[in-house]
Design a binder for these strands. Structure first.
Ligand code: ZN
Ligand code: ZN
Ligand code: ZN
Ligand code: ZN
Lengths: 155, 155
DNA sequence: GCCGGAAATGATATACCATATCATTATCGG
DNA sequence: CCGATAATGATATGGTATATCATTTCCGGC
């Protein structure tokens, strides 16, 4: 079961991060990991009820998500109003500026670090325009190869 | 009055674009231009009532915004759930992939074209990850120089 | 000018996302 | 055990977005 392996991964992450990952936070993280796609806070509340047979109010989910995102165990996709587990939640990989490739068709998301050279060029361009980059997170609307392929056939 | 000059600019834009820019759409565009910052559809409904002494339901505002964004006269900032007039609404400048620098402090926004070399590198990186860039629009959380300066003093 | 279809707008309902606030419970060192 | 702090629950409310059907406006053909 996906949830099972996600749980053990969340366990590992919890041990690595020296932070108070309570059982509910861990469960929310596990649900995010099992989802493998962005989910909303309200969806998580539903998933929690179904997966753990306990009702958790959305308000609490939001707070747990705050915690998880502050600790880079999860991310918020601002352009989607959804959340996703960090691709590096289970490795010690230090967390740089993330970049999300979002398939507009199947909503699969791939997280990667922003390419170093791109990052530097971006910073330069921003500075030139009279701004300072503070919280770089790129969310790029794409098609995954599968969906791009499928699209071509029906064109 | 800002609205007045925005109206004439909207007029120009309307003439340039060979599209059916109705008077209400033009008014919404004028309001966006006068705002000079991102505004929500519901804010626009309020502004419309105040500015033109006529009540327009949010639903209609959304539709007019759809039209304006489809024709690159306005843009939606997906990460803010707000709308902004296109910086090139009044020039014949063909519209490439836009990039928005958003001041997290004062919410000023600057629109610029994505730097060509950055765009190419982005496309390469995306392709390498098994995706195809479809609708490139960068929304970068920044501080404008004024706010960055102000921030330093109070640190 | 009248007519009929298409486009635009209005009206209403509803779903979904997010936060504010106060109450309650869990946790932990002393 | 106590008191402080952190975490969670409960409730209310606000903000954003869409679905659907009704009405009006616009425009070309007659
Ligand atoms: Zn991450
Ligand atoms: Zn896909
Ligand atoms: Zn533009
Ligand atoms: Zn600023």
């Amino acid at each position: 079961m996906l949830l099972q392996s996600a749980l053990s991964r969340a366990e590992q992450a919890s041990e690595r991060a020296e932070i108070s990952l309570t059982s509910k936070r861990k469960n929310v993280l596990a649900l995010l990991m099992a989802a493998e796609r962005p989910v909303s806070a309200y969806e998580l509340a539903d998933l929690y009820r179904e997966g753990f047979e306990q009702s958790v109010p959305p308000m609490s989910i939001y707070r747990m998500l705050d915690f998880l995102t502050e600790n880079n165990l999860a991310h918020k996709l601002n352009s989607e109003n959804k959340f996703i587990s960090c691709a590096h939640a289970t490795c010690e990989h230090s967390h740089g500026a993330p970049q999300f490739l979002i398939c507009e068709q199947c909503h699969k998301v791939k997280e990667a670090a922003i390419d170093k050279s791109i990052f530097i060029e971006l910073e330069k361009a921003v500075e030139k325009a009279g701004f300072v980059l503070t919280n770089p997170q790129l969310e790029l609307k794409c098609l995954c190869n599968e969906c791009a392929q499928a699209g071509k056939q029906t064109d």
